[in-house]
Design a binder for these strands. Structure first.
Lengths: 94, 94
DNA sequence: TATCTATTTCGATGGCTGTCGAAATGTTCG
DNA sequence: CGAACATTTCGACAGCCATCGAAATAGATA
């Protein structure tokens, strides 16, 4: 299986910040629940402009919480389970 | 043993916000690692004023992440393990 | 090529929040 | 009581960030 990931303090900090926004929190939940959604579908039930949605997606990506790949004219969002698991492992140390 | 706690979306949101500040994040880690510290000892290695420290402690308390009790002229900070466990359980649902 | 759709970039803005100094509150002790 | 210590409250401020509209980019399709 995939080797476990060790997060740096900076990465942990980035992830925590990324989760702090309610819209991003819900987006990540949805991305985990329904992998391979496009940006539009992921944000369809959010009341934000495309510009704002794009900004949030970038934040999630820069926190390594998701990967974004081109698929035709869409962008597909997928969760990084390894990073998420590593983040939970960090919090469990508390 | 203590019954498990079910967090409301608002509580989850409050906790996530409380963790978003690096100083609070470290404070909570320290409170978990060394229960029964006073405010001053908890924040001793932070480079913030007493006023700022007090503000952060209030945020952690309002997020139900810690309890604060008087002990003479000190205030003792203690982690709420039940809430923390419930929060981790929520994130694990992702 | 022209057009339509999906998404990003840019620039600006308003609100939130982390921060502080100073004054106040609460507590112990002499 | 009065001094010393721990912490909080108040008021203000600066920087960050979520948000948007408008324009730009990228890809599919006709």
């Amino acid at each position: 299986m995939a080797p476990p990931i060790q997060l740096t303090p900076q990465q942990i900090q980035r992830i925590t910040r990324a989760l702090a926004d309610p819209n991003r929190f819900e987006m990540l939940r949805k991305i985990h629940a329904h992998p391979s959604l496009s940006c539009g579908n992921t944000c369809s039930d959010m009341t934000v402009s495309p510009a704002t949605a794009s900004h949030h997606i970038r934040e999630l990506e820069m926190a390594d919480l998701i990967t974004v790949t081109r698929e035709g004219r869409y962008r597909i969002l997928e969760p990084r389970h390894d990073v998420w698991r590593a983040y939970l492992a960090e919090l469990r140390k508390f």
